[in-house]
Deep mutational scan, measured.
Amino acid sequence: MALNTPQITPTKKITVRAIGEELPRGDYQRCPQCDMLFSLPEINSHQSAYCPRCQAKIRDGRDWSLTRLAAMAFTMLLLMPFAWGEPLLHIWLLGIRIDANVMQGIWQMTKQGDAITGSMVFFCVIGAPLILVTSIAYLWFGNRLGMNLRPVLLMLERLKEWVMLDIYLVGIGVASIKVQDYAHIQAGVGLFSFVALVILTTVTLSHLNVEELWERFYPQRPATRRDEKLRVCLGCHFTGYPDQRGRCPRCHIPLRLRRRHSLQKCWAALLASIVLLLPANLLPISIIYLNGGRQEDTILSGIMSLASSNIAVAGIVFIASILVPFTKVIVMFTLLLSIHFKCQQGLRTRILLLRMVTWIGRWSMLDLFVISLTMSLINRDQILAFTMGPAAFYFGAAVILTILAVEWLDSRLLWDAHESGNARFDD
């Protein structure tokens, strides 16, 4: 018995066209964080690309023209004298008006014999932002004059995390709450300039795509075929072959399989920071003279006294001054041990922890910024005066060393310790 099946006739004509040209192939790229070699397709503007294995951002879609970056830099340069030299806060102490600005706080630190601690604050609040705007201006002028731009481009990517104007702005709020127990506070004209400078700096850093600047100024022929001998440069993120001198053909720094002496430098910085954190938390970090009496505060006791007036601000200072430094030390110690013992479990967790400490590390400088600003506000000789204690130097040095330890660690070593050939990683 035959089955009668109805015929289905399409209502619209289906047209099949042959592909007349070869589909576009992607360029081969190595991930600078996990060293995976993959094919990167062509990316349009405002599109980002991520590593298929570790999800690290390979290409950032946010990109401004150099002219727009230069305009932002010149605007920031105009704001800087007002943000640093004009009063941020006014207080009335014992019937006398006192003005506080950024430069005055750094000068008070240096004047009291601790120039190293003052230079830490100076670099993060004044030096690094000033280098940022002058570097962008150098790129703008240098591109037109045919100057060598490689050193500036190499420095810009590392400079971003040292620009800490946003953290200093939080420190202004913390210092205001600490001082309000002794005097009446009012915002100064410099505060508005400083807030504007923070906003412009944040926007500029978020749109400063150094890798795209490398592509514009020093374009290189990408690798179009897969080759395990391809290496990625950690300076400019170019994937290719080393030249005859073993250097990256684009930025001219040595092109090595792994960062040289990464573990040794990381261990040295980490152990030194552990040693410095002990006096930083045991010795007094601030000293207040009130009517001839002397009151010393460690980091913890200062947080407890701050909690009596504002528990939320005390929580912020606790996280930045105690929780973050010790968390960074514990995480980095764990990561280094996992590399030495070739741990194969929990790779995803370790990668996330490394990215976390990379982002939060700079916030530990908050305590030094609060001390710097408070020193310029309260300084009335023996009637009422505020000065920093010996722990300030140890704390600042420990924070900087932990930042350097994270920067010096080559994250690809975590993958080397893991089993080879993993296309995915999980716990």
Score class of each variant (00 low, 15 high):
residue 112 Q to W: 05
residue 299 I to H: 00
residue 139 L to W: 04
residue 357 V to W: 03
residue 354 L to H: 08
residue 367 D to Q: 00
residue 98 I to P: 01
residue 251 C to P: 00
residue 264 Q to Y: 03
residue 148 N to F: 04
residue 234 L to E: 15
residue 330 I to G: 12
residue 268 A to Y: 06
residue 41 P to R: 08
residue 353 L to S: 13
residue 91 I to G: 01
residue 375 M to S: 14
residue 86 E to I: 03
residue 256 R to S: 14
residue 311 I to M: 14
residue 340 H to Y: 11
residue 200 L to G: 14
residue 178 K to C: 00
residue 122 F to T: 10
residue 107 W to G: 14
residue 17 R to L: 05
residue 73 A to T: 09
residue 366 L to D: 01
residue 238 F to S: 12
residue 115 A to I: 01
residue 328 K to C: 00
residue 72 M to S: 05
residue 253 I to C: 06
residue 410 D to P: 02
residue 123 F to H: 03
residue 119 S to R: 01
residue 116 I to A: 07
residue 205 L to P: 07
residue 422 N to D: 10
residue 411 S to L: 10
residue 305 S to W: 01
residue 182 Y to K: 02
residue 118 G to S: 09
residue 1 M to I: 01
residue 148 N to P: 07
residue 234 L to S: 12
residue 162 W to C: 03
residue 393 F to P: 09
residue 211 E to V: 09
residue 357 V to G: 03
residue 417 A to R: 05
residue 362 R to L: 02
residue 148 N to R: 05
residue 245 R to P: 11
residue 393 F to M: 14
residue 382 Q to S: 09
residue 21 E to K: 10
residue 90 H to T: 08
residue 3 L to E: 11
residue 296 E to N: 14
residue 367 D to N: 00
residue 373 L to E: 05
residue 365 M to K: 09
residue 230 L to Y: 12
residue 140 W to L: 15
residue 392 A to K: 02
residue 385 A to P: 00
residue 107 W to F: 15
residue 178 K to V: 00
residue 203 V to C: 14
residue 271 L to A: 12
residue 129 P to R: 00
residue 189 V to M: 12
residue 85 G to K: 10
residue 343 C to T: 11
residue 257 L to I: 13
residue 217 F to C: 15
residue 279 P to Q: 14
residue 193 S to H: 02
residue 336 L to Q: 11
residue 359 W to M: 13
residue 112 Q to S: 11
residue 28 Y to M: 10
residue 339 I to H: 09
residue 147 M to H: 03
residue 384 L to T: 02
residue 393 F to Y: 09
residue 372 S to I: 04
residue 194 F to E: 08
residue 12 K to S: 06
residue 125 V to Y: 06
residue 15 T to D: 05
residue 40 L to A: 08
residue 84 W to H: 07
residue 28 Y to P: 10
residue 211 E to R: 15
residue 16 V to E: 06
residue 423 A to T: 15
residue 320 A to F: 15
residue 278 L to S: 08
residue 4 N to A: 05
residue 198 V to F: 15
residue 200 L to E: 15
residue 1 M to G: 00
residue 89 L to T: 07
residue 24 P to E: 07
residue 47 Q to Y: 04
residue 213 L to Y: 06
residue 84 W to I: 08
residue 193 S to G: 13
residue 304 M to L: 08
residue 265 K to Y: 03
residue 72 M to N: 06
residue 255 L to N: 07
residue 311 I to K: 14
residue 88 L to Q: 02
residue 331 V to F: 10
residue 313 V to N: 15
residue 242 P to H: 14
residue 367 D to V: 00
residue 367 D to W: 00
residue 1 M to A: 00
residue 331 V to P: 04
residue 378 I to R: 00
residue 60 D to P: 06
residue 29 Q to N: 10
residue 31 C to V: 00
residue 67 T to D: 04
residue 404 L to G: 07
residue 49 A to G: 05
residue 220 Q to F: 12
residue 284 P to S: 13
residue 205 L to R: 13
residue 308 S to T: 13
residue 307 A to L: 11
residue 394 Y to P: 02
residue 224 T to L: 13
residue 391 A to T: 02
residue 162 W to T: 02
residue 80 M to R: 00
residue 269 A to I: 03
residue 146 G to T: 04
residue 161 E to Y: 09
residue 18 A to W: 08
residue 283 L to Q: 11
residue 297 D to C: 06
residue 89 L to V: 09
residue 228 E to F: 15
residue 10 P to H: 09
residue 238 F to P: 00
residue 372 S to L: 03
residue 110 T to M: 03
residue 423 A to R: 09
residue 3 L to T: 09
residue 243 D to I: 10
residue 62 R to S: 09
residue 130 L to V: 14
residue 140 W to A: 14
residue 308 S to E: 12
residue 348 R to P: 13
residue 23 L to P: 03
residue 312 A to Y: 14
residue 87 P to A: 04
residue 114 D to E: 14
residue 311 I to S: 11
residue 314 A to R: 03
residue 228 E to T: 13
residue 418 H to V: 13
